[in-house]
Write a protein that binds this DNA or RNA. Sequence first.
DNA 1: ATATCGTTTAACTGTTTTGTTAAACTAAAC
DNA 2: GTTTAGTTTAACAAAACAGTTAAACGATAT
Lengths: 231, 231
Amino acid sequence: MHGVMEAHAPAGSSSRDADGTTEPGTEQRIFDAALHVFSNKGQDGARMQEIADHAKINRALLHYYFRSKAQLYEAVFAHGFEQFVSGLTPSLREERGFEETLGTFVRGYIDYLHGHQEMARLMLNECLCGGPVLTSYLERAKENPEGFPALVMEDRIRAAVAAGEVRPIDSEQTMLTIVSACIFPFVALPTVRIFHPEVEDDFDAFVEERKRHVVDLLLRGLRPDDTGAAP
Amino acid sequence: MHGVMEAHAPAGSSSRDADGTTEPGTEQRIFDAALHVFSNKGQDGARMQEIADHAKINRALLHYYFRSKAQLYEAVFAHGFEQFVSGLTPSLREERGFEETLGTFVRGYIDYLHGHQEMARLMLNECLCGGPVLTSYLERAKENPEGFPALVMEDRIRAAVAAGEVRPIDSEQTMLTIVSACIFPFVALPTVRIFHPEVEDDFDAFVEERKRHVVDLLLRGLRPDDTGAAP
DNA sequence: ATATCGTTTAACTGTTTTGTTAAACTAAAC
DNA sequence: GTTTAGTTTAACAAAACAGTTAAACGATAT
């Protein structure tokens, strides 16, 4: 950072309106605007002017907060990545039976993605580009795997296999399938929209249905042969 | 196209070497180079110079073949899209039992993606950007849905549900899950690589394992309760 | 042999975009 | 009231890049 001490606008990055409604401060607006533009256009397709417009400021002020586009991108990504990891961790806090653990994880994952579609697209974009930025963050996340939701869940699957709670499947492959089933629908939206326009009419309902479907299909697919259906 | 008649280089877009090895002609090299660069950098991040370098020609000749970057992108996309649809259709030609149909489709899908990862990334990239180009192609594909693999497969699922061959699940959601499970692993590669480096050592083995896993999990997840396991 | 056309070289135009800078304005803080 | 720092305006420099053009070269087909 560089010396932005906020005398004019209050320090907490958000100013309290007369109505009591808290509206975001400049820095937060920049983050939001940058995420919006970056996620749709990518790092190269994004224009500083467009980001400034969305944040309702001008380019000069944008550069006053962030020296360069690359730096802004990094900041936005870091912000989102942190939020992503910390947003999913709590869903794995409580230890119960595997079926409940998996259900909670999938529902939490899809809910999170639903509320942060732009961040999801940004990270996907990084994946497609070979992800130099994403990679460096993942390398750091690898240091303490217990803080990384997908790895924790993968361990839970491994444990469930060992305990005979689920069929003897490859936990790595299974984890990949779970993540796929959660993330991909949000990416594929432009495609799905064309063939199933009704999805967009009630997107929330679609997401709810998605949660039910994924959990149901996975549990059925993983359940051992000898297990009865009724609880 | 514009008047490229190929007098110097043979017409068939590929020249036969003295050794008998057929090496691609200029236009084909441009396609390959453009696909490679576009898929990694996106339409905006791609540089005409880089594409020319990869095709081992210069920018002037590149513009001689394709007037503009946008036109080149369109051409590459069209080429890949056509190939994508026609490459998957045959796997749905023969009608047999549902389980075999699904297995063949999934294996064919994953095999195709394995052999065309760059095209897969290109199409994903389109999805992320709201996909104006992809959208227009899908709109056209909607005209004759029987030629579009994913829609055909979705119908097969619907029919299998009606026939009681599989559980009464939502065929649209199921199709989404299938596509997710096939495509996503290739996108997630940069991520998977970090946590599971062994994948890259023998990628072919990973893909084979992936096919088995997906087919197995799906069939188990879709099978009706009253069906025995042995054939 | 000559016209043809793919190909190269090299220079140039023009636009877009980033990033910088200086000056003036504004509202809060002291 | 003066200071402070966020904010605007406007103009600018510099780089990157797309796209064009003209001249020359080389292999091929006729």
